[in-house]
Computed example of a mutant assay.
Amino acid sequence: MKNLKLSFLSLIFTITLFNCSNGSTEEEDVNNLDSKKYYEALNISYGNDSNQKFDLYLPANRNLDTKIMILVHGGGWSSGDKEDMNLIKDLLQQDFPNLAIANINYRLADTNNKPYPMQIEDITSIINYLKSNKVKYTISENIGFIGTSAGAHLSLLWSYAFDDDNTNMVCSIVGPTNFTDPAYLNNTNPDLQELLDLYSINPETSYLEEVSPLHRVTNLSPPTILFYGGQDPLVPTTQGTDMRDKLVSLEVPHEFTLYPDAGHGWVGLELIDTWTKLKAFIEIYLN
């Protein structure tokens, strides 16, 4: 089970990258921030739980039009950490130096604490925090999401069902989209089922639809880019193709990529292709 949960973590990025600077572990007095200077604050608290923290990276020469990319880690809703997204954060800082970045943690699920609505509420708390401090930080309310695996599911669900029109784009990398998929309902993998049971054991169909991005997307949902692996043992191909087809039917701007031989993550040329496509998508919708 441990290995299965670990496989829900973010993709393994093997590109050598750099960190822009070292940041403090506590938030500084934001009333005196100089918008002309780069700023970062690590482990900003937005709640009482030890996992209710996020890292914030603000570019130099920002203004009230500066957009924010939210990074949401994977881990089967029950493990993982924002550090798993640091290399994606580095890529963004390298190629999009004018973007602000929030790399977030959220409360982790267990048998006594279900992912929903707890983790959606955590994302809402972070977004509300950023909105409340937009003048102090010199940022806009416009955001994008990049999520991996369980974090991709949360990114899609929040953007489709809980956003108030500030999400400009959302990216799902191997994210579950539909808990009513027969490939999930009829699966025979006990380890996978243990993860799915975090949401509910023998749930009603209406509940499964409520927590499924496929059933919450509308024609007003933000532009969406999807990446999936054809040999993924945890997220069936139908999770991606059905989501793609729904976006087509609703005429939501989107892109979809399936790597036929990839599993729950990939490296090499496929990884380069992912970043190339994602970079172009960000340039159109968030940059």
Rank of each mutant, 00 (worst) to 15 (best):
N3E: 09
L4E: 14
L6G: 13
I15Y: 09
L17G: 07
D29I: 11
I44G: 07
N48M: 11
K53R: 15
Y57L: 00
L58Q: 10
A60Y: 11
S78I: 08
G80M: 06
D81A: 12
N86E: 13
I88L: 14
L92W: 03
Q94G: 00
F96M: 01
F96E: 11
I104R: 03
R107C: 13
Q119I: 10
I123E: 06
T124I: 03
K136R: 05
T138L: 10
N142D: 14
I143M: 11
I143T: 07
F145P: 05
I146Y: 07
G147Q: 10
G151A: 02
S159E: 10
F162K: 13
D165E: 10
M169H: 06
M169Y: 03
M169R: 01
V170T: 15
P176H: 04
T180S: 15
P182V: 03
Y184D: 04
Y184E: 02
E194T: 06
Y199C: 12
I201Y: 06
T205F: 02
P213Y: 11
R216T: 06
T224S: 09
T224Y: 08
G230Y: 02
V235D: 04
Q239M: 04
R244P: 00
D245P: 07
K246T: 14
V248Y: 00
V248G: 00
E251R: 10
F256C: 04
L258G: 08
G263N: 07
W266A: 02
G268R: 08
L269W: 06
T274C: 14
L278S: 00
A280M: 09
L286S: 01
